[in-house]
Design a protein around this nucleic acid. Structure first.
Ligand SMILES: [Mn+2]
Ligand SMILES: [Mn+2]
Ligand SMILES: [Zn+2]
Ligand SMILES: [Zn+2]
Lengths: 126, 126
DNA sequence: TATAATTTGCAAGTGACTTGCAAATTATAA
DNA sequence: TTATAATTTGCAAGTCACTTGCAAATTATA
């Protein structure tokens, strides 16, 4: 593990919620080139240390977000006001997904789910 | 409705599955400029005639897909082999989403779900 | 320590849109 | 119908989130 990769992994570990590549590039802009940050993310995901997903939000556009890898598949809520994530816990869609798969004869290998809206903190401030 | 907008809407109507902006640009490349196609899509979605979502597939990257607007919210399966969509029917996640929302005190205003894998036709050809 | 393999920074390239602007269409008024 | 105003279009350039080529800098192995 090089310094850049170690620092990127540490930042994601500390965040405890999905972090976008752009956020990491900003955080490390005085230390590492964006290309290095992107390459570190690819390396860490390839090595199984990170998971990622793509999310679109009106304000920030379409970006890939990274979390520490976990064996258990989780889903997230994204607040459109403060842009923080709330952990929705382990996936509860397996039965429904299996059912859909069966109904249509599909070999479903993965699914993407996320919810958006306003988090409790932001709602209080409205 | 201008000619361009009418043609874009017709193409999506005939497709009966989500169509990407890129596919439409290709289809109309001899008739309309990509900027016109994109503007027609924005116009039609703004007027409530179309719905759209963003999906990432390894082969085609991240693109926005368009379907005719429907009051009932549906979800789709995307085949990673032939890149066609299968309708998974009306959303069955409302109860689970309401439960998550309640548990965390979130005001969930929308959710995104899609499944990927191999469709029956492609599986047969393997 | 010499040498080979890997990683990094920088600059340029990509792909999916988005935007400024002037010309072409279309709509409304006279 | 014709003058005038509003909207839409094509084209070129711009933006944004990455991605890639390449030579210099690090790091690993002999
Ligand atoms: Mn956001
Ligand atoms: Mn695809
Ligand atoms: Zn919030
Ligand atoms: Zn298929």
């Amino acid at each position: 593990m090089t310094k850049a990769r170690t620092h990127v992994l540490e930042a994601i570990t500390q965040a405890k919620e999905p972090v976008s590549a752009r956020q990491l590039c900003e955080k490390f802009q005085s230390d590492y080139d964006p290309a290095t940050v992107y390459r570190a993310l690819h390396y860490l995901e390839e090595k199984g240390r990170l998971d990622s997903f793509i999310l679109h939000c009106a304000e920030h556009g379409t970006e890939r977000y990274y979390v520490l890898h976990s064996e258990e598949h989780r889903h997230w809520f994204h607040c459109e006001r403060c842009h923080r994530f709330t952990d929705l816990g382990l996936c509860r869609f397996d039965d429904l997904v299996a059912q859909m798969s069966l109904e249509k004869g599909l070999a479903i290998t993965s699914h993407t789910f996320y919810a958006t809206g306003i988090c409790p903190e932001c709602r209080r401030k409205m």
